[in-house]
Simulated assay, not measured.
Amino acid sequence: MSKSPWSPGWFTALMAFLLTVGTAAPWFASVLALTAPAVYADAAESLPEDDGAPAAETGQKLIALTFDDGPRRSTTTALLDGLAQRGVNATFFLIGELLVNNEDVVQRMDAEGHQIGIHTFDHVKLTGLSKTDFDAQVDKTRQCLLRILGHNDFLLRPPYGMTDQGVKKHAGCPIILWSVDPEDWRDQNTARVVQQVVSQARDGSIILMHDIFPESVDAALQIVDQLHAQGYLFVTVDQLFAARHIPLDAGKTYSDAYP
């Protein structure tokens, strides 16, 4: 006759085993609680750090979109809205006399990651000016921006792209020109501007546009969408040159950052 599994001796052994497991359970739980996070920490340490730099050295095509002659509240604000929706940063070269009553627009540019530069105080040619007259156009605008933003790291774009030895000597900052100019001011034709910029864009280009025309704002956003579809990443001028390891020196002119 077979022995019953529920005999007193077997039952006593089972109860002893269950008591042992019950006593050890908290210890096992504490071990698991201590060791599990260490696995995740090791995994996190193996991830590359993100320093916020554009992904230039991995084959990313970079391009800088720049705007002159603003700010103009209506059009510049519409442009900022469209760029924000697309996660795009641009560079704005501003007119000093237009800063009055547009301080909040300029502060928004700065807060949203756009770069800001100087385009003189009232859009005059800088070539041939004395140091006093030059400062009345450039340094006066620089001081206005400094009061609004609290920092002083502004690039210079001379009106009409005109420079001479005096401009280079007195600039006090890098001078930024361009490599793609659709002359959007000429006929304010959105379709033509879009076609011209998209066809001429290259990795490392600096695009010149103006944020004072509604047609240019529409064109700029279409350009962003089309070049995004081609794999371009839009960056500020500083980011473009930093990604290409090209130093920007005061008094020197730069038109592109072609690889």
Rank of each mutant, 00 (worst) to 15 (best):
M1S: 15
S2I: 07
W6M: 09
W10L: 15
F11G: 12
L14T: 03
M15Y: 02
F17Y: 14
G22F: 09
T23I: 15
A36V: 10
A38G: 11
V39N: 03
Y40N: 10
Y40M: 14
S46E: 12
G52D: 02
E57T: 06
T58Q: 10
I63G: 07
T66V: 03
F67T: 06
D68A: 08
G70L: 09
G70V: 00
R72D: 15
R73T: 10
L79I: 05
G82H: 07
Q85K: 14
N89W: 05
T91A: 00
N101G: 05
E103I: 03
V105D: 01
V106W: 08
M109L: 11
H114E: 12
I118G: 01
I118M: 05
I118R: 04
F121I: 07
K125V: 04
L129E: 00
S130I: 11
K131L: 11
Q137T: 05
D139L: 06
R142P: 05
C144K: 11
H151A: 08
F154L: 06
R157G: 09
K168T: 01
G172S: 02
V180K: 11
D181F: 11
R186D: 12
Q188N: 14
A191E: 11
V193I: 15
S199N: 14
I206W: 03
D211W: 04
E215L: 13
D218N: 14
A220P: 05
L221D: 03
D225K: 14
H228A: 12
Q230L: 08
Q230N: 03
Y232H: 08
F234Y: 05
T236H: 02
V237Y: 13
L240N: 04
L240T: 02
A242T: 03
S255L: 07
A257C: 10
